[in-house]
């Protein structure tokens, strides 16, 4: 009974719910913006890495390796706390989105590259032999096939970005986690934290399940 009162205190939960939902909204804003920016940036990086001039290929490769190695929390703190020393002062929202997008773009680039490289060489040759420009070859022939392959790993990456938005609370972003810790402090009860955890799971479980289904369907469709 005591345990229930501590972790699942219904009055506390109801009282903190509006605050948690506001936090969820902020989390979604950060997450969706970062995912979209990461997708666009990742596709551009993948194309540069595959088809750019040699120095460009090397540069994108270095970028991708660095941003896959750096811990997101470290990057976020550098962006928010270190950049002001050189006069670059970003808001918490922009800092969080910048850090998440920079890293997500690096992962997305590798996913797109693997997808493009999985397309049989004959598809490129057929497109070239028909006289299609490189742009039309990619847009009409290669990418539509590659997208199918990369949907499961891309969805996985989206889940990771959504989870990582919780780190934004360290730069004072009023996201779901931050709201929950504040509500917890206010009510001297951890129920809002449990509430936040449940909301995270409710948000991401469908995506996790979708990846599983997509991967299964993909494995069958390949035969």
């Amino acid at each position: 009974m005591n345990l229930l009162n501590t972790f699942f205190n219904v009055p506390v939960l109801l009282a903190s719910l509006p605050q948690l939902l506001f936090g969820l909204l902020v989390t979604l804003q950060i997450g969706v913006t970062s995912i979209l920016a990461g997708l666009v940036g990742g596709l551009a990086l993948a194309l540069l890495r595959l088809y750019g001039a040699r120095p460009v290929r090397v540069a994108t490769r270095i970028y991708i390796d660095i941003f896959r190695s750096i811990p997101l929390l470290v990057l976020l703190i550098v962006v928010y706390y270190a950049l002001p020393f050189v006069g670059i002062r970003l808001s918490p929202f922009v800092s969080a989105v910048a850090a998440l997008s920079l890293v997500s773009a690096a992962y997305t680039a590798e996913i797109f590259r693997a997808g493009i490289e999985a397309i049989p060489h004959g598809q490129f040759e057929a497109a070239q032999a028909l006289g299609l420009s490189p742009r039309h070859m990619m847009v009409d022939v290669i990418l539509p096939q590659a997208i199918r392959i990369v949907i499961p790993p891309l969805t996985n990456n989206c889940i990771n970005v959504m989870k990582d938005t919780a780190l934004a609370s360290v730069v004072a972003m009023p996201d779901l986690l931050k709201q929950a810790t504040q509500a917890q402090a206010l009510s001297a009860n951890p129920t809002p934290l449990i509430g936040a955890a449940i909301i995270y799971v409710a948000l991401l479980w469908p995506m996790v399940a979708a990846v599983g289904r997509l991967e299964q369907r993909f494995a069958k469709g390949r035969r």
Partner: peptide, 11 residues
Amino acid sequence: MVFQSFNLFPH
């Protein structure tokens, strides 16, 4: 050009 393995666009 016509290829041995057809290379039609499957999508």
